[in-house]
Simulated assay, not measured.
Amino acid sequence: MKKKSYQVCASCTHFQAFRLNSKMVYHCSRLGFETKPAYSFTCWSPKEHIVNLMKKRGVADNE
């Protein structure tokens, strides 16, 4: 299995992380349910700094 460098929930614009009752909760505002930072979905929209980093390193969006 190939490891994805960027295309994970934690680097998506819809990823939200917050503390609830002293526990970290990770949520996708687009999909509307709980997720984990390392999960990956086909609806991934990278944050601006991730796009810039990918361009700098010459990485394609679909990797």
Results as ranks from 00 to 15, higher is better:
residue 42 T to L: 13
residue 26 Y to I: 02
residue 28 C to H: 03
residue 53 L to Y: 00
residue 30 R to A: 12
residue 20 L to R: 11
residue 47 K to I: 02
residue 59 V to H: 03
residue 61 D to C: 06
residue 23 K to H: 14
residue 61 D to N: 09
residue 18 F to N: 07
residue 25 V to W: 02
residue 29 S to P: 00
residue 35 T to E: 04
residue 42 T to G: 10
residue 62 N to D: 15
residue 52 N to G: 06
residue 34 E to H: 06
residue 21 N to M: 11
residue 31 L to M: 14
residue 11 S to D: 09
residue 42 T to N: 15
residue 55 K to D: 10
residue 35 T to Y: 00
residue 35 T to N: 04
residue 51 V to N: 02
residue 46 P to I: 03
residue 26 Y to M: 05
residue 63 E to D: 11
residue 40 S to L: 02
residue 62 N to Y: 10
residue 35 T to Q: 03
residue 39 Y to E: 09
residue 59 V to E: 13
residue 2 K to P: 15
residue 47 K to H: 01
residue 34 E to W: 07
residue 18 F to V: 01
residue 34 E to M: 07
residue 58 G to F: 05
residue 43 C to F: 03
residue 23 K to C: 09
residue 9 C to Y: 05
residue 29 S to Y: 01
residue 54 M to W: 03
residue 36 K to P: 00
residue 29 S to V: 12
residue 51 V to T: 12
residue 57 R to W: 05
residue 43 C to S: 11
residue 41 F to D: 08
residue 4 K to L: 13
residue 59 V to N: 02
residue 30 R to D: 07
residue 52 N to H: 08
residue 39 Y to K: 08
residue 36 K to M: 09
residue 46 P to V: 06
residue 53 L to M: 08
residue 52 N to M: 08
residue 2 K to N: 12
residue 5 S to G: 11
residue 49 H to F: 14
residue 24 M to W: 11
residue 20 L to K: 15
residue 63 E to G: 00
residue 26 Y to G: 01
residue 36 K to C: 02
residue 32 G to Q: 05
residue 41 F to E: 13
residue 31 L to H: 10
residue 48 E to A: 14
residue 14 H to A: 13
residue 40 S to A: 15
residue 4 K to A: 10
residue 37 P to R: 04
residue 41 F to H: 14
residue 41 F to Q: 11
residue 19 R to D: 10
residue 10 A to Y: 05
residue 6 Y to P: 00
residue 10 A to F: 04
residue 22 S to P: 00
residue 54 M to S: 04
residue 4 K to N: 03
residue 33 F to D: 08
residue 14 H to K: 12
residue 1 M to P: 05
residue 61 D to E: 08
residue 55 K to E: 13
residue 34 E to C: 07
residue 11 S to I: 00
residue 18 F to L: 10
residue 50 I to V: 15
residue 61 D to R: 14
residue 30 R to C: 08
residue 25 V to Q: 01
